[in-house]
Amino acid sequence: MSHGTSRLTGVGVIRQYPFDLAVVSIAAILAYGIATATPDGNVVRLLVTFPLVLFLPGYALVSILFPAADRSGREATSTAIDRQSRGIDVLERLGLAVALSLAVVPIVGIALPFTQWGFTTISTAATLCVVTVVLAQLGVIRRFRTPASERFTVSPLASLARLRGDESAVATASSILVVLAIGAAAGALLFGFLVPPSTGGYTELALYSDNGGEEMVAGNITDEVAPGESVPVTVSITNQEGEATDYTVVVQEQVIEDDSVVERTRLEDLETTLDDGTTGTGELSVTPTASEGETVRISVLLYEGEPPEEPTNENAEEDTYFWVTVEE
């Protein structure tokens, strides 16, 4: 009594489970875990993001589309139908993996903003991980449904043995290098789109005047005061540095001659700490020390942290000023 076909037992399935698809599934899970556990800008996070974005989803999809190996160069047949390859070779498989990954990732990026999870690092990594693992398991099913003689398989030990004895090892290594070069170029291109060069944070400094108790008005600061009289000014600082920042504001009276500062008088300091994305305001009463009939420049100099011993407009992070004349 004979059986035309044999069914794989549980142990048989484990033993014949495709090595490459197991690696792809495990790599996707590890990449998700590392990408979500490390902070933004971490080198390790960038390294694990590349395969998750550039290779793993596409390779899993290729395993579904082409479960068979390339037979055109290994078997000679007598008919045109038999001469057609039912699979693709390793070089084509790797190249398609990169190309299809670049097609899958934008679809995920477009779809996520319309879901409850939104387009975030965690949601993107999780989605790519799930997509990769699911596609890989579907690829496993396709492999098992393909005759063993035609099935695409990856065996590290067998590959090493072939490399030691195969005269075409140099050509194979060259093909691998070409694929790696293509992947590196595509990775650099994708990295440029996803992570553009950072322009750094910034801080905004502005001066406002009190318009009769109504909303604050930019500029329009009193330009004439009597001796000993103060000029009311509101200083506004907006922190867009990406983190909480300590600021010091130095109010300085400057005597200008021939477009140069010939005398400086430090009138007042203001210190504050602002969280990222917040705006803080402070009220100042600037009292010039200039003599009657003299016009001076009041410079407001902003520093992150402690100011230098000699604050100037040139060494300030941000600066602004207004003119005031002292007269009866």
Results as ranks from 00 to 15, higher is better:
S174D: 01
I256E: 10
E150S: 05
I81T: 12
A80P: 03
A161M: 08
T36I: 07
G192D: 14
I64L: 14
L91M: 15
E292N: 08
T127K: 03
D319C: 02
P196G: 14
Q254I: 02
V262Q: 06
R297N: 10
F19Y: 13
E204A: 12
Q116V: 08
F19V: 15
W323A: 02
M1Q: 12
M1Y: 05
P18G: 08
P57K: 02
R297C: 07
V296A: 07
F66A: 04
G58K: 04
T287M: 10
P147K: 03
T312R: 10
S260G: 05
T9S: 15
L301T: 01
V251W: 04
G200N: 10
E327M: 01
S209E: 11
G183M: 11
L91I: 15
M1I: 02
E263D: 15
R145S: 06
G10D: 06
A136H: 10
F191C: 05
T127R: 08
T79I: 05
S174Q: 12
T312C: 10
E283P: 00
P67M: 00
G4K: 11
L94F: 04
L267A: 08
A173P: 03
S209G: 09
Q16H: 14
T272M: 15
A103K: 04
I29N: 03
S285W: 07
A244H: 13
L52M: 10
V131Y: 12
L65R: 03
G187D: 15
P51D: 04
E224C: 12
T222H: 01
G41R: 05
G109V: 05
P113M: 09
S230N: 13
G4H: 15
T245M: 04
P308M: 09
V13F: 15
L205V: 14
P288A: 14
T325A: 10
V262Y: 09
F191E: 14
A171I: 03
M216D: 14
V326P: 02
V154F: 15
E306C: 02
D259S: 13
G212N: 12
V44T: 11
L96E: 02
L30A: 09
S78L: 14
L180P: 07
V44F: 09
D258Y: 12
D259L: 14
E243T: 07
